[in-house]
Protein backbone atom coordinates (compact mmCIF):
# COMPACT_ATOMS: atom_id res chain seq x y z
CA UNK A 1 0.00 0.00 0.00
CA UNK A 2 1.29 3.41 -0.88
CA UNK A 3 -0.12 6.83 -0.20
CA UNK A 4 -2.26 8.27 -3.00
CA UNK A 5 -0.03 11.35 -2.85
CA UNK A 6 2.89 9.38 -4.27
CA UNK A 7 1.10 8.85 -7.52
CA UNK A 8 -1.87 11.17 -7.85
CA UNK A 9 -2.27 10.62 -11.58
CA UNK A 10 -2.45 6.82 -11.41
CA UNK A 11 -4.74 7.03 -8.41
CA UNK A 12 -7.08 9.41 -10.22
CA UNK A 13 -7.11 7.34 -13.42
CA UNK A 14 -7.91 4.16 -11.49
CA UNK A 15 -10.36 5.45 -8.92
CA UNK A 16 -12.34 8.17 -10.70
CA UNK A 17 -14.24 6.27 -13.45
CA UNK A 18 -15.65 3.49 -11.23
CA UNK A 19 -16.37 5.97 -8.46
CA UNK A 20 -18.17 8.24 -10.87
CA UNK A 21 -20.32 5.36 -12.15
CA UNK A 22 -21.20 4.22 -8.66
CA UNK A 23 -21.94 7.73 -7.46
CA UNK A 24 -24.18 8.57 -10.42
CA UNK A 25 -25.94 5.22 -10.74
CA UNK A 26 -26.02 4.10 -7.14
CA UNK A 27 -25.41 6.84 -4.59
CA UNK A 28 -27.48 9.49 -6.34
CA UNK A 29 -30.47 7.10 -6.72
CA UNK A 30 -30.26 6.39 -2.99
CA UNK A 31 -30.15 10.11 -2.24
CA UNK A 32 -33.13 10.76 -4.50
CA UNK A 33 -35.02 8.03 -2.73
CA UNK A 34 -34.03 9.53 0.60
CA UNK A 35 -35.37 12.92 -0.51
CA UNK A 36 -38.58 11.25 -1.73
CA UNK A 37 -39.05 9.63 1.63
CA UNK A 38 -39.84 13.07 3.04
CA UNK A 39 -42.07 14.05 0.11
CA UNK A 40 -45.84 13.80 -0.27
CA UNK A 41 -47.90 11.77 -2.68
CA UNK A 42 -50.06 13.86 -4.92
CA UNK A 43 -53.61 12.83 -5.84
CA UNK A 44 -52.46 11.13 -9.08
CA UNK A 45 -49.53 9.45 -7.45
CA UNK A 46 -47.10 12.19 -8.43
CA UNK A 47 -44.45 13.34 -6.01
CA UNK A 48 -44.66 16.67 -4.27
CA UNK A 49 -41.43 17.56 -2.57
CA UNK A 50 -41.74 18.51 1.06
CA UNK A 51 -40.04 17.94 4.36
CA UNK A 52 -42.20 15.95 6.68
CA UNK A 53 -42.00 12.68 8.50
CA UNK A 54 -45.51 11.59 7.65
CA UNK A 55 -44.25 8.65 5.57
CA UNK A 56 -42.12 7.39 8.44
CA UNK A 57 -45.03 7.91 10.82
CA UNK A 58 -47.21 5.86 8.50
CA UNK A 59 -44.63 3.11 8.42
CA UNK A 60 -45.01 2.56 12.12
CA UNK A 61 -48.79 2.56 12.05
CA UNK A 62 -50.25 -0.71 13.21
CA UNK A 63 -51.00 -2.19 9.83
CA UNK A 64 -47.49 -1.56 8.51
CA UNK A 65 -45.74 -2.22 11.79
CA UNK A 66 -47.40 -5.61 11.64
CA UNK A 67 -45.74 -6.33 8.30
CA UNK A 68 -42.37 -5.11 9.53
CA UNK A 69 -42.74 -7.22 12.65
CA UNK A 70 -43.77 -10.20 10.53
CA UNK A 71 -40.67 -9.73 8.36
CA UNK A 72 -38.47 -9.76 11.44
CA UNK A 73 -40.31 -12.79 12.79
CA UNK A 74 -40.06 -14.74 9.52
CA UNK A 75 -36.38 -13.81 9.26
CA UNK A 76 -35.76 -14.95 12.86
CA UNK A 77 -37.53 -18.29 12.37
CA UNK A 78 -35.70 -18.78 9.08
CA UNK A 79 -32.37 -18.05 10.76
CA UNK A 80 -33.08 -20.47 13.60
CA UNK A 81 -34.08 -23.31 11.27
CA UNK A 82 -31.19 -22.57 8.93
CA UNK A 83 -28.83 -22.74 11.90
CA UNK A 84 -30.28 -26.04 13.13
CA UNK A 85 -29.77 -27.54 9.67
CA UNK A 86 -26.60 -25.65 8.79
CA UNK A 87 -24.51 -26.13 11.91
CA UNK A 88 -24.38 -29.94 11.75
CA UNK A 89 -23.65 -29.66 8.05
CA UNK A 90 -20.78 -27.24 8.68
CA UNK A 91 -19.43 -29.58 11.38
CA UNK A 92 -19.74 -32.58 9.12
CA UNK A 93 -17.85 -30.90 6.30
CA UNK A 94 -15.17 -29.46 8.59
CA UNK A 95 -14.45 -32.91 10.01
CA UNK A 96 -14.71 -34.79 6.73
CA UNK A 97 -11.58 -36.33 5.22
CA UNK A 98 -9.59 -33.76 3.25
CA UNK A 99 -10.41 -35.22 -0.16
CA UNK A 100 -14.15 -34.99 0.55
CA UNK A 101 -14.15 -31.47 1.93
CA UNK A 102 -14.02 -29.62 -1.36
CA UNK A 103 -16.60 -31.90 -2.94
CA UNK A 104 -19.01 -31.36 -0.05
CA UNK A 105 -18.41 -27.61 -0.06
CA UNK A 106 -19.07 -27.51 -3.77
CA UNK A 107 -22.30 -29.42 -3.21
CA UNK A 108 -23.40 -26.79 -0.69
CA UNK A 109 -22.56 -23.86 -2.96
CA UNK A 110 -23.78 -25.35 -6.24
CA UNK A 111 -27.52 -24.65 -5.77
CA UNK A 112 -26.56 -21.11 -4.80
CA UNK A 113 -25.30 -20.58 -8.34
CA UNK A 114 -28.50 -21.58 -9.99
CA UNK A 115 -30.91 -18.77 -10.59
CA UNK A 116 -32.75 -17.57 -7.48
CA UNK A 117 -36.01 -17.41 -9.36
CA UNK A 118 -35.66 -20.96 -10.64
CA UNK A 119 -34.73 -22.32 -7.24
CA UNK A 120 -37.78 -20.69 -5.74
CA UNK A 121 -39.98 -21.84 -8.59
CA UNK A 122 -38.73 -25.40 -8.08
CA UNK A 123 -40.33 -25.37 -4.65
CA UNK A 124 -43.74 -24.62 -6.14
CA UNK A 125 -43.64 -27.99 -7.87
CA UNK A 126 -42.72 -29.63 -4.60
CA UNK A 127 -45.18 -27.89 -2.31
CA UNK A 128 -48.35 -27.28 -4.33
CA UNK A 129 -51.52 -29.26 -3.70
CA UNK A 130 -50.67 -31.65 -6.53
CA UNK A 131 -46.93 -31.40 -5.81
CA UNK A 132 -44.28 -33.97 -5.03
CA UNK A 133 -44.65 -33.72 -1.28
CA UNK A 134 -48.39 -34.23 -1.26
CA UNK A 135 -47.95 -36.90 -3.88
CA UNK A 136 -45.49 -38.72 -1.64
CA UNK A 137 -47.79 -38.33 1.34
CA UNK A 138 -50.75 -39.66 -0.62
CA UNK A 139 -48.69 -42.65 -1.71
CA UNK A 140 -47.72 -43.32 1.91
CA UNK A 141 -51.33 -42.89 2.95
CA UNK A 142 -52.47 -45.39 0.32
CA UNK A 143 -49.91 -47.98 1.42
CA UNK A 144 -50.82 -47.49 5.07
CA UNK A 145 -54.50 -47.87 4.23
CA UNK A 146 -53.74 -51.18 2.52
CA UNK A 147 -51.67 -52.23 5.51
CA UNK A 148 -54.48 -51.35 7.91
CA UNK A 149 -56.84 -53.13 5.51
CA UNK A 150 -55.17 -56.42 6.40
CA UNK A 151 -56.32 -55.87 9.95
CA UNK A 152 -59.72 -54.75 8.80
CA UNK A 153 -59.21 -51.28 10.20
CA UNK A 154 -58.67 -49.34 6.99
CA UNK A 155 -61.24 -46.78 8.05
CA UNK A 156 -58.91 -45.30 10.72
CA UNK A 157 -56.85 -43.81 7.90
CA UNK A 158 -59.78 -41.93 6.47
CA UNK A 159 -59.71 -40.05 3.18
CA UNK A 160 -56.43 -38.46 2.10
CA UNK A 161 -56.53 -34.69 2.40
CA UNK A 162 -53.65 -32.93 0.60
CA UNK A 163 -51.83 -30.53 2.91
CA UNK A 164 -51.94 -26.83 2.17
CA UNK A 165 -48.19 -26.32 1.86
CA UNK A 166 -47.95 -23.52 -0.64
CA UNK A 167 -48.85 -19.83 -0.52
CA UNK A 168 -48.41 -19.38 3.21
CA UNK A 169 -45.76 -18.39 5.74
CA UNK A 170 -44.44 -21.93 6.07
CA UNK A 171 -43.68 -22.07 2.38
CA UNK A 172 -41.89 -18.73 2.61
CA UNK A 173 -39.76 -19.97 5.51
CA UNK A 174 -38.90 -23.19 3.64
CA UNK A 175 -37.95 -21.19 0.56
CA UNK A 176 -35.80 -18.78 2.57
CA UNK A 177 -34.03 -21.55 4.48
CA UNK A 178 -33.31 -23.19 1.16
CA UNK A 179 -31.95 -20.05 -0.47
CA UNK A 180 -29.84 -18.77 2.43
CA UNK A 181 -28.43 -22.02 3.83
CA UNK A 182 -25.03 -21.61 2.08
CA UNK A 183 -24.64 -18.10 3.50
CA UNK A 184 -24.89 -19.52 7.01
CA UNK A 185 -22.92 -22.71 6.44
CA UNK A 186 -19.85 -21.11 4.87
CA UNK A 187 -18.80 -18.73 7.70
CA UNK A 188 -19.46 -21.41 10.32
CA UNK A 189 -17.54 -23.97 8.31
CA UNK A 190 -14.65 -21.52 7.93
CA UNK A 191 -14.31 -20.96 11.69
CA UNK A 192 -14.62 -24.63 12.62
CA UNK A 193 -12.15 -25.55 9.90
CA UNK A 194 -9.61 -23.05 11.24
CA UNK A 195 -10.17 -24.19 14.83
CA UNK A 196 -7.20 -26.00 16.37
CA UNK A 197 -8.57 -29.52 16.78
CA UNK A 198 -6.41 -29.95 19.90
CA UNK A 199 -9.00 -27.90 21.81
CA UNK A 200 -11.61 -30.56 21.14
CA UNK A 201 -9.13 -33.33 21.84
CA UNK A 202 -8.13 -31.65 25.08
CA UNK A 203 -11.78 -31.51 26.10
CA UNK A 204 -12.28 -35.22 25.38
CA UNK A 205 -8.99 -36.00 27.06
CA UNK A 206 -10.15 -34.23 30.22
CA UNK A 207 -13.19 -36.48 30.39
CA UNK A 208 -15.88 -34.49 28.60
CA UNK A 209 -18.22 -36.35 26.25
CA UNK A 210 -18.94 -35.27 22.68
CA UNK A 211 -22.05 -33.23 23.52
CA UNK A 212 -20.30 -31.53 26.41
CA UNK A 213 -17.37 -30.76 24.13
CA UNK A 214 -19.76 -29.37 21.52
CA UNK A 215 -21.46 -26.98 23.92
CA UNK A 216 -18.49 -26.07 26.15
CA UNK A 217 -15.69 -25.87 23.62
CA UNK A 218 -16.64 -26.14 19.95
CA UNK A 219 -19.59 -23.76 19.90
CA UNK A 220 -18.02 -21.03 22.08
CA UNK A 221 -14.90 -21.12 19.94
CA UNK A 222 -16.92 -21.08 16.72
CA UNK A 223 -19.12 -18.25 18.01
CA UNK A 224 -17.74 -15.54 15.69
CA UNK A 225 -18.61 -17.69 12.67
CA UNK A 226 -21.99 -18.64 14.10
CA UNK A 227 -22.93 -15.02 14.77
CA UNK A 228 -21.66 -13.89 11.41
CA UNK A 229 -23.53 -16.63 9.54
CA UNK A 230 -26.76 -16.13 11.47
CA UNK A 231 -26.79 -12.36 11.05
CA UNK A 232 -26.13 -12.78 7.35
CA UNK A 233 -29.01 -15.21 6.97
CA UNK A 234 -31.17 -12.84 9.02
CA UNK A 235 -30.60 -9.66 7.00
CA UNK A 236 -30.89 -11.49 3.70
CA UNK A 237 -34.21 -13.07 4.72
CA UNK A 238 -35.54 -9.83 6.11
CA UNK A 239 -34.93 -7.89 2.92
CA UNK A 240 -36.23 -10.57 0.60
CA UNK A 241 -38.78 -9.86 -2.07
CA UNK A 242 -38.97 -12.76 -4.50
CA UNK A 243 -39.58 -15.66 -2.11
CA UNK A 244 -42.76 -14.27 -0.51
CA UNK A 245 -43.89 -13.02 -3.92
CA UNK A 246 -43.74 -16.54 -5.35
CA UNK A 247 -44.32 -18.86 -2.40
CA UNK A 248 -46.24 -16.65 -0.01
CA UNK A 249 -49.92 -15.92 0.31
CA UNK A 250 -51.91 -13.07 1.75
CA UNK A 251 -50.63 -13.81 5.25
CA UNK A 252 -46.96 -13.63 4.28
CA UNK A 253 -46.35 -10.24 2.75
CA UNK A 254 -42.99 -9.00 3.95
CA UNK A 255 -41.46 -5.54 4.00
CA UNK A 256 -39.82 -6.09 0.61
CA UNK A 257 -43.19 -6.81 -0.96
CA UNK A 258 -44.74 -3.82 0.76
CA UNK A 259 -42.03 -1.59 -0.74
CA UNK A 260 -42.51 -3.17 -4.16
CA UNK A 261 -46.25 -2.55 -3.94
CA UNK A 262 -45.73 1.17 -3.29
CA UNK A 263 -43.73 1.38 -6.50
CA UNK A 264 -46.20 -0.58 -8.60
CA UNK A 265 -49.91 -0.91 -7.90
CA UNK A 266 -50.20 1.60 -5.04
CA UNK A 267 -48.03 4.22 -6.72
CA UNK A 268 -47.01 5.81 -3.46
CA UNK A 269 -43.30 6.37 -4.01
CA UNK A 270 -42.70 8.62 -1.00
CA UNK A 271 -44.08 6.01 1.36
CA UNK A 272 -42.19 3.24 -0.47
CA UNK A 273 -39.00 5.29 -0.16
CA UNK A 274 -39.51 5.73 3.56
CA UNK A 275 -40.09 1.99 4.00
CA UNK A 276 -37.05 1.26 1.90
CA UNK A 277 -34.91 3.45 4.11
CA UNK A 278 -36.29 1.84 7.24
CA UNK A 279 -35.21 -1.52 5.81
CA UNK A 280 -31.81 -0.07 4.95
CA UNK A 281 -31.32 1.34 8.44
CA UNK A 282 -32.28 -2.01 9.95
CA UNK A 283 -29.79 -3.75 7.66
CA UNK A 284 -27.06 -1.28 8.55
CA UNK A 285 -27.61 -1.72 12.26
CA UNK A 286 -27.22 -5.48 11.95
CA UNK A 287 -24.17 -5.16 9.69
CA UNK A 288 -22.66 -2.77 12.20
CA UNK A 289 -23.31 -5.21 15.06
CA UNK A 290 -21.72 -7.96 12.98
CA UNK A 291 -18.67 -5.86 12.12
CA UNK A 292 -18.12 -4.68 15.68
CA UNK A 293 -18.46 -8.23 17.02
CA UNK A 294 -15.93 -9.42 14.46
CA UNK A 295 -13.61 -6.55 15.42
CA UNK A 296 -13.85 -7.34 19.13
CA UNK A 297 -13.14 -11.01 18.56
CA UNK A 298 -10.16 -10.25 16.37
CA UNK A 299 -8.72 -7.82 18.93
CA UNK A 300 -7.25 -9.73 21.87
CA UNK A 301 -6.79 -13.11 20.20
Amino acid sequence: MESWRNNRLVFAVLALPPTAWLVIFFTVPLIIMWVYSFAERGPQGQIELAINFANYARAIEWIHLGIIWKSIWIAAVTTLITFLIGFPLAMGIAFAPARWKNVLLLLVILPFWTNLLIRTYAWIAVLRTRGFLNFGLEWAHEKLTILFGFFGTAQVMGEFQPLELLYNQKAVVIGLVYVYLPFLVLPIYATIEKLDKSYLEASLDLGAGHWRTLFSVTMPLALPGIISGCLLAFILSMGTFLTPALLGGTDSEMIGNLIARQFSSSRDWPFGSALSFLLLYLTFIILWVRASLAGRKAGPL
Partner: peptide, 13 residues
Amino acid sequence: VNMVFQSYAVFPH
Protein backbone atom coordinates in the same frame (compact mmCIF):
# COMPACT_ATOMS: atom_id res chain seq x y z
CA VAL B 1 -4.54 -40.78 31.08
CA ASN B 2 -4.25 -37.07 30.35
CA MET B 3 -2.34 -35.16 27.79
CA VAL B 4 -0.35 -31.95 27.50
CA PHE B 5 -0.71 -30.87 23.88
CA GLN B 6 2.04 -29.50 21.72
CA SER B 7 0.01 -26.34 21.16
CA TYR B 8 -1.07 -26.56 24.85
CA ALA B 9 -4.73 -26.28 23.72
CA VAL B 10 -5.56 -24.07 26.70
CA PHE B 11 -9.18 -23.04 26.07
CA PRO B 12 -9.01 -19.38 25.04
CA HIS B 13 -12.57 -18.61 26.16
